[in-house]
Simulated scan of single mutants.
Amino acid sequence: MTIDNQLDQFISSFISYHQQNKGGLTIPYDSSWPSTCYQATGREGEAVPWLPQKRDTTATFGNVEEALGITLNKAYCQFFSRYFSDNLPAVAPQGNCELLQVWNSDDFTRLQQNLIGHLLMKQRLRQAPTLFFALTDEDDFILSLLNDTGEVVLEQVGKPPKEVIAASLGDFLALLTPR
């Protein structure tokens, strides 16, 4: 199954879970942070319904690749190019995590800037390039992809990956349940 299909499947189960168990998805409204995800407008800070939205156009990481002289893992690029969404809390066999997502085009730019900083740090430390995509419940541990192999790894920020969690991002997404 492709990354797009795995992500579509997870998001569909995420939406169903929240509709059945939590009455839907809501987020504080922020007029200065617009998104197609808002399903309604409201007063500043008021909880409004939202849903992940497939992007109309495919975003690219070409500027990151050109700036750093690196080709980014295709699955990683697809993961962040498919939807606009708030972050997605999930449960993996190893524990809770939160899949990072981008809320709007400005957020995608911010993600790219953070990724450049992360990759430059990895270069400076002479470590293999990793591509972060999720947070864990442990403060300075993140889930990343090894750029060269596509394996999902647990890594402490600034250190080499601690362990391989899944053979691919698609395999990892298949293991998740929404929370």
Rank of each mutant, 00 (worst) to 15 (best):
T130R: 00
T36P: 11
L99T: 08
F84A: 12
L99R: 02
L111Y: 14
G45Y: 07
T26M: 02
G69N: 14
S13W: 01
T57G: 04
L146C: 10
L88H: 11
T60M: 10
S31R: 10
A167R: 13
P49C: 05
K122I: 01
G62E: 15
R82H: 15
V48F: 04
F61A: 15
T130G: 00
D56M: 12
R179C: 12
I116Q: 04
N147Q: 10
T60E: 15
H118N: 06
L7P: 07
D86S: 15
A167F: 09
P93M: 06
I142M: 08
F79N: 02
I11H: 00
L51M: 08
G117W: 00
D107W: 05
Q53Y: 02
D107Y: 04
L7I: 09
A92Y: 12
R82V: 14
Q123M: 03
L115S: 01
T136L: 09
W103F: 06
R179K: 11
Q101M: 09
L125D: 00
I11L: 04
N114C: 02
W50Y: 10
Y38P: 07
R82Y: 12
N147T: 05
L7Q: 08
G150N: 10
G95S: 05
P49D: 01
S32N: 10
F14V: 01
W50F: 09
K122R: 13
R179E: 13
I165V: 15
H18L: 03
N114Y: 00
L173D: 14
F84H: 14
T71W: 09
G42T: 02
Q113F: 04
N147P: 10
L125R: 00
P34H: 12
F133G: 01
L143F: 04
G24K: 06
V152L: 08
D30V: 11
T41E: 06
P129M: 00
D140R: 11
G95C: 10
F132W: 01
I3N: 09
R110W: 12
N104Q: 08
N5R: 11
K159V: 07
D139C: 07
Q112L: 05
L154K: 10
S16W: 03
R124M: 05
L143G: 02
L143D: 03
L169S: 07
R124Q: 08
E98G: 02
N63W: 14
P49R: 03
A75E: 15
L115G: 02
Y38H: 00
G170R: 11
N5A: 11
L175V: 15
A67K: 13
S105P: 07
L25I: 07
H18I: 07
L173N: 13
T58I: 14
S12Y: 00
T109W: 06
